[in-house]
Nucleic acid binder design. Structure first.
Length: 434
RNA sequence: GUGCCCUUAGCUCAAUUGGCAGAGCGCUUGACUGUGGCUCAAGAGGUUACGGGUUCGAGACCCGUAGGGCACCCCA
């Protein structure tokens, strides 16, 4: 029997990571709530067509990175094609439309947390299954909505101790000015088409904007003097962008205008951004997002503006781990219940169970190990106290309580032990949890 | 999808020009038969990623596959 291994690009997150992970996700949730976001959980599986339509057929994500399969229909007929979500936004928009969230107070501010799947070649901090924190503001064209999305991202990373944060920001215009710019870009690049890198020649036809952030050596020289989209924005888009930048200036949020930033998803309009940080190797982006005013209508909903972003949890965890940021310890039982003998084992199991029913954490040994081994476990698990029930205690109806830190012990009646446990352990559990 | 590098115990790594597969940590047990940390001792744990080939002999050399790392592409 061959040993099973995790699927390529997918990894186990082991218990020792729990404290750090809940530190990060806890911060994300707390900031989302501070900004007035509510949680929405959508399925991991969606119709392939949703992503093809929403994200765009010609994007890298849809054209080569999706985990898709044909579902079974009735009577063995072939059903529809389903896909493991490669991003959050399309699914959240589907849910917004399907559940009539457009008839609730607008805008709807929604956050999500969960796994995302992209079938890329794995690399450091690039996995085929990874976790994202996602936030969307749906139903407002106000630049303040853009600002709040940027600020959620910024606040999250600031609070987790990131240094040298910087937004890369650009505007990709709207359905009126974006095509004008694309035409201008195509016209500018057309004479050089033969000299561009093959992939870029292809992009020029299918998705001209993507030529902009090309890193192909042959292409780069021709990009330097390419027209800039900011020069082609119509009045509305320019005003929107300038208002957003004005807020960022006023708040002292660092950003760099990056006119080559277009991002790989078709649905973006107006604002696009990425937040860059240190310690990520070739993966500069901690998180990214932008505005998608046409998406909901494209997916069959009422014309509705929206803006959002997604952050990669693994990338955040990696960086703060490297910076040696310690996460607060998670609460754990302070008491270890040890026993000797079968009869005492029953009493010990009952004792531990009763404590837990009263909300007090307790750990108990399995497998009838020696007292010595039980004490070693108690120490290893960081328990402060050991309650021992052996033949003597069983006969006397008592419990021997040892304080490991002070190497002191005393024998108490069951009643006295119960009082001690409620007084000492319930308060300490609460203290650890807080 | 492309290029380069890597893969030996649960983990981190040794093993002379091809010549008996090892250490530390961790784990289990024990060191006055009711008591932890520290120390000491013993034990368990391996198809050397997988499949072929060369050789008297392969962890080592050759080919293939898988997985990992780094970079490209793109992004979280």
């Amino acid at each position: 029997m061959p040993r099973f291994k995790s699927v390529k690009g997918m990894q186990d997150i082991l218990p020792e990571k729990e404290a750090l992970w809940s530190h990060v996700t806890g911060a994300a949730v707390s900031i989302a709530r501070r900004f007035g976001f509510a949680k929405i959980d959508t399925p991991v599986l969606e119709a392939t067509a949703l992503f093809a339509r929403g994200v765009g057929e010609d994007t890298d994500i849809v054209s080569k990175e999706m985990y898709s399969f044909m579902d079974r229909g009735r009577d063995g007929e072939q059903g529809e094609s389903l896909t493991l979500r490669p991003e959050f936004t399309a699914g959240v928009m589907r849910a917004y439309i399907e559940n009539g969230l457009s008839s609730r107070p607008q805008p709807q501010k929604l956050y999500s947390l969960g796994p995302i799947f992209r079938r890329e070649r794995p690399q450091k901090l690039r996995y085929r299954q990874f976790n994202q924190f996602n936030a969307e503001i749906i139903g407002s064209p106000d630049p303040v909505a853009d600002l709040e999305i940027l600020l959620v991202a910024y606040t999250l990373h600031r609070e987790l101790g990131f240094k040298n944060l910087n937004f890369q920001i650009n505007s990709t215009g709207d359905p009126e000015c974006k095509p004008r710019y694309i035409e201008a870009l195509k016209a500018y690049l057309a004479p050089y088409a033969g000299k561009l890198a093959p992939t870029d020649r292809d992009r020029l036809q299918r998705n001209p904007l993507r030529v902009l952030d090309s890193k192909e050596r042959e292409t780069l020289p021709y990009l330097a003097d390419a027209p800039r989209i900011l020069d082609y924005l119509n009045d509305e888009c320019r005003a929107h962008f300038n208002e957003l930048l004005g807020y960022l200036d006023a708040l002292g949020v660092p950003y760099t205008l990056n006119h080559k930033l277009v991002r790989g998803l078709d649905y973006y309009t107006k604002t696009v951004f990425e937040l860059w940080g240190e310690g990520l190797g070739a993966q500069a982006a901690l998180c990214g997002g932008g505005r998608y005013d046409g998406l909901i209508e494209l997916l069959g909903g009422p014309p509705t503006p929206g803006v959002g972003f997604a952050a990669g949890i693994e990338r955040i965890v990696h960086v703060i781990e490297e910076q040696g940021v310690g996460a607060p310890a998670l609460p754990q039982p302070r008491l270890f219940v040890a026993y000797q003998g079968d009869a005492a084992k029953q009493a010990a199991v009952a004792l531990a169970s009763n404590l837990r029913l009263r909300g007090i954490g307790a750990r108990i040994a399995f497998d009838g190990r020696s007292l010595k081994a039980q004490f070693r476990d108690a120490d290893r698990y960081g328990c402060a106290y050991v309650a021992v029930i052996g033949p003597d205690e069983l006969a006397a109806g008592s419990v021997t309580l040892r304080d490991l830190a002070h190497s002191a012990q005393q024998t108490l009646s069951r009643e006295a032990f119960g009082v001690w446990a409620i007084q000492t352990l319930s308060s300490q559990d609460a203290a650890t949890a807080a």
